[in-house]
Design a protein around this nucleic acid. Structure first.
Length: 275
DNA sequence: CTAGCTTCCTGATAGC
DNA sequence: TGCTATCAGGAAGCTA
């Protein structure tokens, strides 16, 4: 499931393959991946437009067009965006294919079909994408202990759940929330209202640190990208806790524990994350 | 305002 | 072998 570091990786890989290319035509195989406007209109608006830039905000990707129009997309759980030569065989669950002026194709593949696309004309604000309610980026200098405390200090929900609130810090999902809490030495079940000042301080350090580390370890060469046909965006970072239930903690050796918190599986070290 | 539940989807896996 | 049940999860939308 792509989180901020993977979306950033996708952006960096795709930007040089998309910028300066014109969208020649758009085939939408499954209209449900288009959230706004209607699929036909979406295809019409894109056709003939030159791609001028790619940007990321939280887990959203934005494809900027020459007319000031914007394609926003969210990959959710299983969405994959890739540029391939037109002759590459088509993956199962391909929902959108945009032919580009250099002969390549931009393809969207999504097994579970949770991902969504929006097209916004220049200045258009009426279509709700979710982008508008995003909080600050993890690398924003405004991400301080005070900021976190101000947003979450009175919340009764546990910190693990609240780290997923995109309106506080944008881009954190289930993998990186586990990694951040381990780095900060904070128990995922701890209620926000019960966190101490030193724990807010450590979270304010760990959030940008772990997200930056994720981006670094995801970094992929164009050769690696092509070898995987662009399907894999995570270069297998050495995760400390996520998915390692029962295995020894990399810091203290104690067996890592798994719990379901707010409907999400959560892994942590009961020794290193006692409070 | 918050908490809690449901929805969307398919593939992997477990149990019989 | 083949069936059914369960689970995974980002975020919106709903009710209470």
């Amino acid at each position: 499931m792509p989180e901020l570091p993977e979306v950033e990786t996708i952006k960096r890989i795709l930007a040089p393959q998309l910028c300066g290319r014109r969208v020649e035509n758009v085939q939408i195989r499954n209209a449900q991946v288009i959230a706004h406007p209607r699929a036909e209109t979406f295809a019409e608006r894109l056709t003939g437009k030159m791609i001028t830039g790619l940007s990321r905000r939280g887990k959203f990707l934005r494809i900027e067009l020459e007319n000031g129009g914007l394609v926003c997309l969210h990959l959710r759980m299983t969405g994959q965006l890739m540029v391939t030569p037109a002759e590459f065989s088509e993956e199962k669950h391909t929902h959108l294919i945009a032919a580009l002026s250099d002969g390549n194709q931009l393809r969207y593949i999504d097994v579970r079909r949770f991902g969504r696309f929006w097209y916004l004309d220049k200045g258009e604000t009426d279509a709700f994408t979710g982008l508008e309610r995003l909080g600050i980026e993890p690398d924003d200098p405004g991400l301080t202990a005070d900021y976190l405390y101000g947003k979450l200090g009175t919340k009764k929900k546990c910190i693990k759940e609240m780290l997923h609130d995109q309106s506080v810090v944008a881009g954190i999902g289930n993998i990186y929330s586990d990694e951040i809490l381990f780095d900060a030495g904070v128990c995922p079940e701890k209620k926000c209202s019960e966190l101490r000042a030193d724990q807010w301080n450590r979270l304010a350090v760990s959030i940008p640190k772990i997200i930056a580390w994720g981006i670094e370890t995801d970094a992929m060469t164009p050769e690696e990208y092509l070898a995987g046909k662009g399907r894999e965006y995570r270069n297998m970072p050495e995760l400390k806790v996520y998915g390692r239930a029962g295995m020894p903690c990399r810091r203290c050796g104690s067996p890592l524990k798994q719990l379901t918190i707010g409907g999400r599986s959560s892994c942590f070290c009961p020794e290193c994350q006692k409070s």
